[in-house]
Write a protein that binds this DNA or RNA. Sequence first.
DNA 1: CTAAATTAGTTAGCATAGCTAACTATATTC
DNA 2: GAATATAGTTAGCTATGCTAACTAATTTAG
Lengths: 153, 153
Amino acid sequence: MAKVKEELAELGTQSLRTADQLHSAAIHLLRRLRKQDLLTGEGPARLSALSVLVFGGPKTLAELAAAEQVKPPTMSRIVAGLARSRLVAVSRDPQDARRVRIVSTPKGTRLLQQGRRRRIEYLASNLERLSHDELEELRHGIEILEKALRHWR
Amino acid sequence: MAKVKEELAELGTQSLRTADQLHSAAIHLLRRLRKQDLLTGEGPARLSALSVLVFGGPKTLAELAAAEQVKPPTMSRIVAGLARSRLVAVSRDPQDARRVRIVSTPKGTRLLQQGRRRRIEYLASNLERLSHDELEELRHGIEILEKALRHWR
DNA sequence: CTAAATTAGTTAGCATAGCTAACTATATTC
DNA sequence: GAATATAGTTAGCTATGCTAACTAATTTAG
């Protein structure tokens, strides 16, 4: 009985620590990756949106905004930036002229994949001190996080 | 021999996927947590800097900038914002009047801990679908990530 | 002991990225 | 056909990142 109580308290403390760790680790990781991503000449929001287009295919603006958890005006500006750099092409939907269809251009796909390679090389060089097992456990942890993000409310 | 080659290729593919997953998961997690953190009335950069002060004690501006991996002008502005809200107190170093000593005020410490509680409750409510084992594995993955961040180059 | 060089921080100015409110243009409904 | 609803855009605010150029204080050279 006392043991159950202790475990509950322990779990609470762990969740608290886990939340803090997750927040802090995510912030510091992104600060470092951002420096690499800047070498592509585009900011993180643009690269993330482009990634959705490259891996998920064409999207309307509202779909893209929802995927990126951002409001339409914000996505409108992100897409405008990508279009100015010719990384995406924007066309009207013939069925409904209010909608726009946003597609990655070959240039956009190429840039994303180059950035991805650069990021991987950078990350890999920093993860290589980890043992094969640790890398596997990290990957496993990320998958659990992804699952939690998918079922977020 | 061929098997070793396959394993290397496999490792490369895994690193690539791991890097992408990590990037994407970090971005999407922070977008969600940001909404909670905004309820404190302060942005993520300020909260993160405040957290360093609360858990790491007083710091000079340069120390804080290094801890947060940003340039001094950026940290200068973050501290100015925190000081305006009376969340930190700034004083000159008597030994070296160029340096400033930045400390969390009781109000700052309180706000951080309230935000932390809110974030934990939010995270916990979203992580509660995970099994106890999954939560433990997630925590383990984060610790590996933290280790990698500590040894970053 | 002053003059030059270095160091710590700030200020100014630019870009990205988030938001809400208010607008335009197109579709839908009554 | 007029009112309403929906998809995006524009305008304007805040926060956060940067570099370049500045001020003030300390340290070092001569």
